[in-house]
Design a protein around this nucleic acid. Sequence first.
DNA 1: TGAATCCCTGACGCCGACGTCAAAGGCACA
DNA 2: TGTGCCTTTGACGTCGGCGTCAGGGATTCA
Lengths: 122, 122
Amino acid sequence: MRIGELAARTGVSVRALRYYEEQRLLASERTASGQRVYPESAVERVRLIRQLFAAGLASKAIEPIMPCVVTGEVVPELLERLRAERERMDAKINELIAARDKLDAILAGADAAAHKGRPCPR
Amino acid sequence: MRIGELAARTGVSVRALRYYEEQRLLASERTASGQRVYPESAVERVRLIRQLFAAGLASKAIEPIMPCVVTGEVVPELLERLRAERERMDAKINELIAARDKLDAILAGADAAAHKGRPCPR
DNA sequence: TGAATCCCTGACGCCGACGTCAAAGGCACA
DNA sequence: TGTGCCTTTGACGTCGGCGTCAGGGATTCA
């Protein structure tokens, strides 16, 4: 498929897809005239990229793992980095949970105050 | 205390603290000569700011809730936004967990491949 | 064969959370 | 009174993940 279809099927902009290629996260074949052509598997690939971005990974962190995702093969040094990233994600999750609980506490306090009908001062 | 000490005690840069003030997340008194002076409570305040930043809140989202955190008072409209932010955080947490699990799967596959002694091709 | 729609590269713009530098003035201790 | 560090404002720089525009070719359908 061509880039427009891939964009439509993934919900990612054409510009973003080209950017992913620039960052070597996503490869493409080219027609004789230079247009990008993607296999079906690209859809899944893009979803994975988005998911890793959402997890806070930078493209530079994603790039080296991509060839390995495909084959399931990896060098030990890379394995280290992956585990490190995993740790970062775990930490981030805990951070988020703590922050959410804090927000809950604020909400609880606000609810209590709201019942007394007092507005928020500025 | 002055800005340098607050920075040291919170692990946040002086520049960042001034930025927080610019964004009206953090207030300060001034000496006659114009130097910033903070109360003890500023330490906690900065920690809260950092925590909310870490949770993905933007300074514009944090600013309006700050006076309310102090007094525990809030207007209903704001309450809406807070709840919306809470939802966003929950979603983000789930995203992160999913991404972590995906990474775990990749790691598992990599481990298996590593046992066969195959390197990661480039 | 034309018209609409797609696609290409290259380049500049944007935004948020600061980093960094410049030029100047304070503060503490000798 | 010097000297060495702290602080001030102001302004420009950075970085990542794109958006957006310009100026051109490719595809497709009638």
